[in-house]
Structure formats: C-alpha cells, structure tokens
C-alpha cells in the first residue's frame, strides 16, 4: 500500500509538472503582448518595453519558464494585474468558498446517485426504474447554467426561503478563519444561525452543480449493480440463506461502487468547469468567480494560477478516488501496480 501510494504520488508530480509547463507555453505562444495588455492601449512604446523588463518577458523563453517554475515551487504565482496583489494570496482567499461548494456537491452527488441507482437496480424494469431513468436523463442534458437559472426562478417565486445569490447573509457578521468552510467553522464557533444560513445559501448552487454527475453516476450504479447481481457468488450467498438486505448492501454495493466512484473522479474536471458557471450565476465568491473576473480583464498571471489550481484540484481528487478504490477493491491496487 505504501509503495502504491508513493508511485501514485510520483505520477501525480509528473502530471502536475506537465500541466504547469503546458499552461505556461500556451499562455506565452498566444498572440498579444502581456505587457501591452497590462498597460492598456494608451501606454507608450517605452513604457511597454520597461514593463517587459519588469515582467521578465525579454529573457530567453527557457529562462522565463525556469523562473516561472521555480517561483511555482515556492508557491509564487506572480502578481495579479486586476487586484495588484499576489495571485497566490488572492486564490487562497477565494479557495475555501469553492472548496466548500465542491465538497458539498460531491457529498450531495453520492448521497443522491448511489441510493437512486441501487433503487433502480432493485426495482429493475418497474416504474421506479423508469422514473429514475428520466431524472438521470434530465440531469445529464440540462446545461448547468440553464438549471441554475431555472432554480433561481423557482426560488424567487416559490421557495423564497432560499437566497439566490451570495454565500452568507452580510448581516450575520461572521468570519470563517479556522478552516475557511462556513459549515464547519460555524459549528466550531457554536453559531447555529450562521450554520443554517450558510446551508440555505449552499443548497441551490450545489444542486445546480450536482445534477449532471448525479444523472450519470445513477445509471452507472444501476448497471454495475445489475452486473454484480448476475455473478455466481451472489447466487451462492442466496443459497446459503444470507438475507437479501445483506447481499444487496454489503456484498453487491461494495463491488458495484467501483465504477460510479471512477466516474465521479473523471466527472470532477467538468464539475470544476461547471463551477465557473454556477458561481457566476449565483454570485458565489469562489475561485471561479475570481477566474471569470480576471479572464475578462486579461489578467494573465491570475488566469494561469486559476487554471493550474483547478488542474491540481482535479489531479488530487483523482488520486484520492484511486486510493479509495484501492481500499474497496484490492484487485484495483494490484492492476495499477502492474501497469506502471
């Protein structure tokens, strides 16, 4: 297990390095001079040249890349043109909000999709199955921003209990500085009013974000449950007289969890992408809102930082899922070990 982890961590490092280089190269080969963009169209040629020196753009390309990577190793992503603060501190400031949204979304996805998938498999080809099929289809084909707008529309007319923008009522005057996650910090501080308010704000955005994954994972849970149900050892357990409940939840579900978890890990990339849209619609003060803002201002350092951080987010998430799969299914551990 230790070896397995070490190997995974190493390949993670490789992917991360590749990602950093790739993003840097893309950001440099695109037409448009970053210095010119930073100063705006009114700057003189001299000012631009000065700025180029200051930003290190006149150095040879390899030297620029090296400077960038060594800065990265120190956790330095450069300065943001928009906020004129360090990109790293901006991101650190915005990250907890996104982290809370994404984490809650994943919990919501697992809590909704796996039970619904099991239900669909147990009541296969009945109306229950058909209803879950339609729910899943709606989840998959509804674009995140359309769902977000529909939810906002419903909330503003009928469910006025749910606020449609922001993360916390400003009147509550609460600063989350222990973990940065409102739901956890409010419990630690014993502020239940903050906790319920944070949850109210969180529910609609995370629902909009969760839908696509729920739709997909539900169907996959269903089909892998059915596949496992046809295995001999299930028949054998049944013959031994093991209660159906135990067979379904302890034997079948454990094996059937492998495929849905893998998909959840893969879906995570589009989850982060969708977070850009959902945060934008719901005015959620996270890294994606920051990303969209900096992108619209052509703030290159910040954009690179945001893409890089979301890439790291994704890679780490996949490692986590991999380890989880290794625990659930020992065969996975062995297969991975023999592959690399």
């Amino acid at each position: 297990m230790i070896w397995y982890l070490a190997r995974r961590a190493f390949s993670l490092l490789l992917v991360f390095l590749g990602l950093a280089i790739l993003i840097f190269v893309i950001a440099r080969i695109v037409p448009g001079d970053p210095a010119r963009i930073a100063l705006g169209p009114l700057a003189t040629a001299n000012q631009v040249a000065e700025m180029r020196t200051e930003m290190g753009l006149d150095l040879p390309f390899v030297q620029q890349l090296w400077n960038y990577l060594s800065g990265l190793a120190r956790g330095d992503l450069g300065k943001s043109l928009l906020t004129s603060r360090d990109v790293m501190s901006d991101i650190r400031h915005a990250l907890p909000a996104t982290f809370e949204l994404v984490l809650f979304t994943i919990i919501l996805q697992i809590a909704l999709s796996i039970p619904l998938g099991v239900l669909a498999a147990v009541y296969r080809d009945t109306w229950v199955d058909n209803v879950t099929r339609i729910i899943s289809l709606i989840g998959v084909v509804t674009p995140g921003f359309v769902l977000a707008i529909i939810l906002q529309l419903i909330a503003s007319y009928h469910l006025t209990f749910f606020p449609i923008t922001g993360r916390l009522d400003t009147a509550l005057n609460f600063k989350a500085d222990t973990t940065g996650l409102l739901l956890i910090d409010s419990i630690l501080a014993g502020r239940w009013d903050v906790w319920t308010d944070a949850l109210r704000h969180l529910l609609l955005p995370s629902l909009a974000l969760a839908a696509a994954g729920v739709g997909q994972v539900m169907r996959i849970t269903r089909s892998s449950m059915i596949e496992v149900a046809n295995r001999d050892f299930i028949e054998a357990s049944r013959a031994y007289g093991i209660p159906e409940r135990v067979i379904t939840f302890r034997y079948m579900l454990r094996l059937a969890c492998v495929a849905p978890l893998t998909i959840l890990g893969l879906e995570f990339a589009s989850l982060i992408g969708n977070a850009f849209i959902v945060e934008f619609v719901f005015g959620w003060p996270g890294i994606a809102s920051y990303g969209v803002r900096t992108i619209l201002h052509k703030d290159l350092n910040a954009v690179i930082g945001v893409v890089l951080v979301s890439g790291v987010f994704f890679v780490v998430m996949n490692l986590f899922i991999d380890v989880l799969l290794g625990i659930i299914d020992p065969r996975h551990r062995m297969r991975e070990a023999s592959n690399t």
Partner: peptide, 24 residues
C-alpha cells in the same frame, strides 16, 4: 498517452475560458 493524460487533467471549461479570453 501521457500527454493525453495531462491534457485531460485540465478542467476543459476553465482552459477554454482562459484561451478565449487571451485570444479575444
């Protein structure tokens, strides 16, 4: 395949946003 893996590790929408923003 490793190059593909790296490309797949980039959240597509985030990357597309960055590219379109930089390219106008």
């Amino acid at each position: 395949m490793r190059f593909t893996d790296i490309m797949l590790a980039i959240p597509p929408l985030a990357m597309a946003l960055a590219i379109t923003a930089v390219l106008s």
